[in-house]
Amino acid sequence: MQDYVQNLADNTLILGQRLAEWCGLGPFLEEDLALTNTCLDIIGQAKMLLEFAAELKEGNETADDLAFMRDQHEFKNVILVEQPNGDYSQTMLRQYFMDVYHVHLYQALSTSTNQKLAGIAAKSLKEVVYHLERSELWIKRMALGTDESFQRVQASLDKLWHYHHELFEETESLTELVKQGIAADPNVLKQLWLKDVNALLASTPLEIPQKGWKATGGRKGHHSEYLGLMLCEMQFLQRAYPNSEW
């Protein structure tokens, strides 16, 4: 259970941290505001989920300890969210993949037999529905906008497609949680995700890359090289000045 919540929490924390890198630097003012809004929502979700994850650990750790004092191998997020922002198409495609996932995930979890998880999911669902509206529109704009934008978003798709598999990996413990009605069924999520993503891509000239590796490992703490560097930055103050109040 702790592992499951930790995965959900880390997905949002790391995605939010990546989005925070855009703060003040968006492609135009209104978009900068809107992306920071998404970032705020997602880090807000991370905070709720980390608080729950800390509670489930039954130790003295707080949400901040989990965010700022764990090393990279202890993070359980999927590798997709730690991928660099790249250009705006890469950021938005990563966002779109996660938005579709979060909408179906939170939808399912809003009826979880775990009250706490159901509450967090219900609250977050409203936010991610709006995020999805935005990221979906951006994928359309880029795919159908100019030659350059099409080429960029196609290149991002070629790069990022291979990471989605990891969102739907099954493990024994997850299957058990699904049985108890606590967690969302990854197979169901995968079907819903593929249906939505395929439908959007079909309305554009974008093509899904046919072969390639399948990302895996994040949920076990086996990450890409990007995560360690990102944590150096994110955790700097807590590491350099431990036992301080901020």
Binding site: P27, R141, L144, G145, E148, S149
Partner: peptide
């Protein structure tokens, strides 16, 4: 400058 193609894409769409 990095945002130019993004704004152009939105306008073209």
């Amino acid at each position: 400058n990095d945002g130019a193609w993004v704004r152009e894409a939105a306008a073209a769409y």
